[in-house]
C-alpha cells in the first residue's frame, strides 16, 4: 500500500513537472512573440548576400501589418531599384520596373531564393507569431556569446508551415532568439539563423542583425541588417494594394 502511494505521488509530480515545463516553454515563446511581433512595423534594412564570386548589398524599405500584409521597395543597387514586392494573405506579387510587369509568385517558386540570398520567398512571407504555429518544450540551458539562453524545441501544430520543427536559443533576460535552427519533417537541418546586436526599441528588445544560412547551399550565408525599425506606426492602407506597386 505504501509502495502504491509512492508510485502515485511520483507520477503526479512528473505530470505536474511536465505540465509546468510546457507552460514555461509556451510562456517563453509568448514573451518572444511580444518582442518580435507587432501590430505593424517599418524597417529600413541592408541585405548582404555573399555569393561564391562576390558579395552584394541590397537596401530596402518594408512595411508590414501583422502577418497578413507586407510591402517592400528595393532602393539600391541600381539593378534592383524600383522593384517592389507585395504580400497579401498567402499571395505574393513582384513588380519589375524594367518590364512594367506585375508577376505573381506561387507554387514551387515560393521556395526559391530571393535575389540569390539564403532566404526564400516563403521565409519572407511567413511572419506568423511562433505561438500560433509551434508548440514548445524546454530542452535545457546553453550559453551563447556570454549570454544564458533557454533552448526550446518547437514542433509545428499547423500543416501550412515551411519548417516542421525548430530549435531556438532564447536570451533568458531579454526574451529574444539568439539562434534558430529549422528542420524538415525528415529531421534534416535546412536553415540556421544567428541573431545579434539586440537593441531596445520602443520598449521592446529586437535583434538588428540576422545571419541566415541555407544549410543545403554552399556559401557564407546572408546578413540582414536592420538600419531603422519603427513599430506601431500609421501606415496608409493604399500601400498594401497592387496599384501601389506601379507607383
Amino acid at each position: 500500500m505504501k509502495r502504491m502511494k509512492k508510485i502515485f505521488i511520483t507520477a503526479l509530480m512528473t505530470t505536474a513537472l511536465v505540465g509546468l515545463a510546457a507552460q514555461d516553454a509556451d510562456q517563453i515563446l509568448e514573451t518572444v512573440d511580444k518582442n518580435m511581433s507587432s501590430k505593424n512595423r517599418i524597417f529600413e534594412s541592408d541585405m548582404v548576400i555573399q555569393g561564391r564570386r562576390n558579395s552584394r548589398t541590397i537596401t530596402s524599405v518594408s512595411y508590414s501589418v501583422g502577418d497578413k500584409q507586407s510591402f517592400t521597395e528595393y532602393i539600391s543597387p541600381a539593378r534592383e531599384q524600383g522593384t517592389k514586392m507585395l504580400k497579401l494573405e498567402d499571395k505574393l506579387w513582384i513588380y519589375s520596373p524594367s518590364t512594367d510587369r506585375i508577376i505573381q509568385i506561387s507554387g514551387h517558386m515560393l521556395r526559391q531564393s530571393v535575389m540569390g540570398s539564403d532566404l526564400s520567398y516563403e521565409d519572407m512571407m511567413d511572419d506568423r507569431k511562433m505561438t500560433e504555429v509551434y508548440s514548445a518544450t524546454v530542452a535545457g540551458h546553453e550559453e551563447i556569446d556570454g549570454r544564458d539562453t533557454y533552448v526550446l524545441d518547437l514542433t509545428a501544430k499547423v500543416d501550412d508551415v515551411a519548417y516542421h520543427s525548430q530549435k531556438i536559443w532564447v536570451d533568458t533576460e531579454r526574451y529574444v532568439p539568439l539562434k534558430q535552427e529549422m528542420f524538415a519533417k525528415s529531421g534534416q537541418l535546412l536553415k540556421r539563423t544567428t541573431l545579434s546586436n539586440v537593441q531596445k526599441i520602443q520598449g521592446r528588445w529586437f535583434p538588428m542583425n540576422m545571419v541566415y544560412k541555407d544549410m543545403l547551399k554552399d556559401g557564407k550565408g546572408t546578413e540582414f541588417r536592420v538600419n531603422s525599425a519603427k513599430f506601431d506606426q500609421d501606415i496608409p492602407d493604399y500601400i498594401f494594394t497592387k496599384a501601389a506597386l506601379k507607383q
Partner: peptide, 11 residues
C-alpha cells in the same frame, strides 16, 4: 522571370 548571374531578380 528568374535570377541573373549575380543573383538579382531577372525579368
Amino acid at each position: 522571370f528568374g535570377s541573373t548571374m549575380n543573383g538579382s531578380m531577372m525579368f
